[in-house]
Amino acid sequence: MPVFYGREVASPLMLGTAQYPSPAILAEAFRRSGAGIATVSLRREGAGGAGAAFWQLIRDLDVPVLPNTAGCHSVREAITTAHMAREVFGTDWIKLEVIGHPDTLQPDPFGLVEAARILTEDGFKVFPYMTEDGILAGRLLDAGCEVLMPWGAPIGTGIGLMNPYALRTLRAQFPDVPMVIDAGLGLPSHAAAAMEMGFDAVLLNTAVAKAGDPAAMAEAFALALRAGQMARKADPMPPREMASPSTPQIGLAVLA
């Protein structure tokens, strides 16, 4: 199971907690999937502790909480939100989002590195939401991050792994860094593919929360992750150009 900053989590499935039809259905999705981490946003809900009732429901899920800085468009906003999250949830984990564009919600790589450095120096354990860029990955590690969270596709699109080539390269470039595919997944098959590539976990929200039956979809993702993980360990065959029948031709009856 994945280990983040020295802490092992129970499942490679990390679930967001926004947009569910109700908190009861959210809890059911966690129960059925056995998700290992709950992410929660504070930016809009935070003012004056007004989100306390909902946050208590999140704590009651009884899984480690990874607060995030979703909706933050500047380094300063992200840092303020991170400090609030540390106070509210009593954790130094923070999923760092610094959004670079309001439409595409693409992460701002420059702001991300700056915020990651400041937060790490301040004792936070940063989980940066990033593009799949290998140079950016190196800078984030230099800034003190010990986990990377490359996107599969832009947030909420459900497209899946948009750039498998770059993701494979990133995985190969930093083989020992725990990596989570974050955002853009729509189907359990996308999650299985991420595990087959050797990623350690996936983080999703919309694909589950906006499904007709969120709890069933969460379970489907959990099963797909298990399949992908098992396949990775089983050492899959490489693709081949040459067709190779699994039954030998020699010895078949010749029906002239």
Binding site: R44, E45, A47, G48, A50, G51, A52, A53, F54
Partner: peptide
Amino acid sequence: QIESDSRGPATLR
């Protein structure tokens, strides 16, 4: 629809 008890004025966003 925001998970918050706040009854204060609407935000700019």
